[in-house]
Simulated scan of single mutants.
Amino acid sequence: MMLKVEQLTYTYRDGTKALDRISFSVPNHAKVAILGPNGSGKSTLFLHFNGIFLPQEGNVEVLGIPVNKKTEKDLKRKVGLVFQDPDDQVFSSTLWEDVAFGPENLGYSKEEVEHRVERALKAVDMWDYRHKPPYHLSFGQKKRAAIAGILAMDCEIMMLDEPVAYLDPQGQDQLFSLLNELYQQGMSILIATHDVNLACEWADYIILMKDGRVLAQGGTELLVREDLIAQGRLRLPIVAKLFQKLNKDILTLPTTLQEAANRINQWLK
């Protein structure tokens, strides 16, 4: 399994219980969307997967590695996190220095660092900006810069917290085009979001959360179950709402535009 979580509980110092005995597992090489309203525990959960947070109660395994003090450094090599606001992680004087930060701290030689930075920046189409200060970049460019920092460390898993926040439509399309390329190259990708339309179109595995607990896990068909959507304080995908309005005898609602188009074409025939 890529991820295995058993009875994980995490409470902040002010007494807020962010995770409450949650358990789930995720298969290898997946596109995973973790959905839930604000405060459901998505970001806290992410911080356990690369060792920033260690389990207070319960167990977490990532790629078969238990998350603990002995493994936290190794996990940071394997799992990269892109924050919702890239200004929280893109902070060096130049883009080159920022992407080089991770490999340098892992102790790679100068030649290896240079090779990794060049490869990563070219992969996200940011090579021409390598000498620019990050604060001169657009929000979408900063997102790609943060991804380059993860690529430079050869992480096997990439996590993105609310990946489309503050991005315009073109920036969103560019970001997910890049993520799909990385997935095709073998990287596993997790996103935390409350956007059901995005999750339906992109993900192949869904985890629904609320109040620090897991409501359900499985395929995208979970997102057209009205009972789960109501519990999770989410909305049905737009395509599902459209089919509800059609007043046809529909056993299952579509989750993607392509599935909806296929059904409409069948009706027209």
Rank of each mutant, 00 (worst) to 15 (best):
L8V: 03
T9M: 01
T11Q: 15
D14H: 08
T16K: 12
L19H: 08
K31H: 08
K31I: 06
G39H: 06
S40E: 05
G41T: 05
K42Y: 03
F46E: 11
F49H: 07
G51T: 06
G51L: 07
G51Q: 01
L63M: 15
V67Q: 07
V67F: 11
K69Y: 12
K70M: 12
L81N: 02
D85E: 13
D85A: 11
D87R: 13
T94P: 00
E97Q: 13
D98F: 13
P103H: 00
G107V: 02
G107Y: 02
E114F: 04
A120R: 01
D128S: 15
K132E: 12
L137P: 02
L137T: 09
R144Y: 14
I147T: 11
L151Y: 11
M159C: 12
Y166T: 13
Y166I: 11
L167C: 01
L178G: 10
E181W: 09
L182F: 15
L182Y: 09
L182S: 11
L190C: 07
A203L: 05
D211P: 05
G212S: 02
G218N: 06
E221P: 03
L228I: 00
A230M: 03
R233I: 02
R233T: 08
L236G: 07
N247I: 08
L253Q: 11
L253G: 09
R263E: 15
I264T: 10
I264V: 15
